[in-house]
Every structure is written in C-alpha cells, then in structure tokens.
Computed example of a mutant assay.
Amino acid sequence: MIRQAVTDGLEAREIDHDPHFQWRGRNVTRIENLSDIVFALALGMLVSASSPPIDFTDLKFHLLGIIPVTAGFAILLLVWNMHFVYFRRYGLGDRTTIFLNAILLLLILFIAYPLRFIFDALFSYILIAFGHTARIEALGIFDTMMAGELMRYYAIGYALIFAVYALMYRHALKRADEIGLSTKERMLTALSVQVFIMQIIIASAVAILAAMPPLWVWASFLFFFNWPAGYGLRWLYHRKLRKLEQAEGATG
C-alpha cells in the first residue's frame, strides 16, 4: 500500500523537519504503531536494566547511571527518528517494507540490554581513571580482551541496523516512480543509502580491529570518522543538487 502524497509544500516546510522532501506518509499506520511500541519497550529496557538500589552506595551508582543511560537513550532515539523520517518521506507499506521493518524491530529489542551494558562499561572505564574500580568489577569485565569483545558486539549490532536502513532506502529508490519521487528526492535518497553504507563500512572496520589484540584499544576511535565522512558525502550531493537547481532555473 502506498499512501496518497500531500501536495501542500508550504505545510511540509513549516511543520515538518524535513523541508527538502514532500512527505507522503501523513497518517500513522499499524506498521508504525507496532514500531513505536517496540521502540518504547526498548527505551524502557534501557532505563530499567539495572537492579533497584538497596542502600546509599547503590543509590549513588544508580544516579551516576544517568550518564550511560543518556548515551544509549540518544542512540535509540536517533534510530527511531530515522524510522520516523523514512515512513514520513515514502509512505510505503508493502511486503518488503514490512519484512525489513520486522528485522529492524527484532534488532532493536535484541540490542537494548547490550547497549546499556556497553555504555555502563565505557563509563566505568572513565571512573577507573579517578580510582573507582568497583563499578567495572561488578560488570565482570576484568581485562582488555573482554573490552574488545564487547566493542565487537556493539559494532556488529550498529552495522546490522544501518544495513537494514540501507536496504529500506534502496527499496524506496526502486519504487521512486510509483511514489512520485522528484529528481532531487531521488538524489537525497541515494545520498542516504551511501551514508548508511559508509556507516556499515566503518562499523565493520571497528569490529575487525576489536578482534586484533594490538589494535582493539583504538578500534572505537574509528567511529569518529562517521562525521567527516558523512559531511563529505553530503557536501558532494548538495553540490550536485545546486547544479541541478541552476540547470532547472536556466531552462525555466
């Protein structure tokens, strides 16, 4: 099913936070309802993953937990926003979209607890620098080999989620004629696919380096390449868009 496109461009620019796209998905479907429930469950699992405090020391650790919880919460919200934008942009509800969305929801539920554990561990390593070792010992991480394995899990989950999004956007691009994507929208969709592929490559490199003993300490720093690489891709595509707009203006 493909929902009817909304033709009021002014409304899209003033209300939506995606001004370069005409949003085709205006009504919330059952696919999105189910997805929002799953995201809400995952966010709840992330926040409530730790046991309730039973004494003052536990309470202090619980309050400090707001830092890793916030990091994991931000990542899940980023993934949710990508999901929200996809269904607003394309309004697709066919079998392929349902199948890929189901895989995505399974991944979201599966990574909720590991995501909390990973950021708890990263925060605990920061506390070690200040002489507090109890938190990392409570997590059962006793050497750098375990830390490298933990980073591999995170990188693999990260790559899988972006692989699903890349497939979803590729699918939308294949149905561009049916849903009426403009030339600019096709280019932006292709840009999204390229950005997702870039994320997959970087996450895969992190997972590989995290399995190599001399390099696993530095593996996570590869994630910082996401910003310059993503910015470079967007700059190239926006340059193409400007040329396209200039050409359209000259012929008009």
Rank of each mutant, 00 (worst) to 15 (best):
E185R: 00
D94A: 01
L127D: 00
M45I: 10
L77V: 07
F56T: 12
M145L: 12
L191M: 13
I201A: 12
L160R: 04
W216G: 08
E248C: 00
R242A: 02
R135G: 01
H238K: 04
Y125S: 07
F87M: 01
R116I: 15
L222C: 09
P114V: 08
P68A: 11
H83Q: 08
S48T: 09
L105Y: 02
L241N: 05
S48E: 08
R234F: 06
L173R: 10
L173Y: 06
N226A: 05
R170Q: 10
R152Q: 14
Q4G: 08
R30W: 04
F119Y: 07
D55W: 00
V69A: 11
I111M: 11
A134P: 05
V164I: 06
G93C: 03
F99A: 15
P68Y: 06
I2W: 10
W80T: 10
T183K: 04
W227Q: 03
A203T: 05
L100I: 12
H83P: 03
F224A: 00
L104H: 12
P52Y: 06
Y86T: 12
G140K: 02
L209S: 04
T96D: 14
L77P: 01
Q199A: 08
F39A: 05
L63Q: 07
Q194P: 00
W216T: 13
P228Y: 13
I161C: 01
G230C: 07
V47P: 10
F99P: 02
I208V: 06
T97G: 11
I202D: 03
V164T: 04
I37P: 01
Y165C: 01
F73V: 10
M82E: 13
W23L: 13
F117C: 07
L100G: 08
A211W: 06
T70Q: 05
Y154N: 06
G65F: 11
I2E: 15
W227F: 15
L139I: 14
A211L: 07
L76M: 14
M146N: 14
S51G: 02
R239G: 10
V217H: 12
F56S: 14
I128H: 05
L46S: 01
R30E: 07
I202F: 09
R13A: 12
I208K: 05
A211D: 12
A219W: 13
I103K: 00
R89Y: 15
G180E: 06
M187A: 01
D94H: 04
E137C: 02
F196G: 04
M146S: 14
L10V: 13
G91M: 09
F223V: 05
V38C: 09
G93P: 03
R13M: 13
A5L: 07
I31F: 15
A247M: 02
A163Y: 02
M212K: 01
P19V: 10
Y86P: 09
P214V: 00
F130C: 04
G91I: 09
P114W: 08
L160V: 10
G72D: 10
T57K: 15
N81S: 00
I108V: 13
N81H: 05
Q199E: 13
I75D: 02
H83Y: 14
V79L: 03
P213I: 13
G44V: 15
Y125L: 05
V6M: 02
I108M: 11
S220M: 07
A102L: 12
W80L: 04
R152W: 04
L222V: 06
F56A: 14
A121C: 11
R26N: 07
F223W: 15
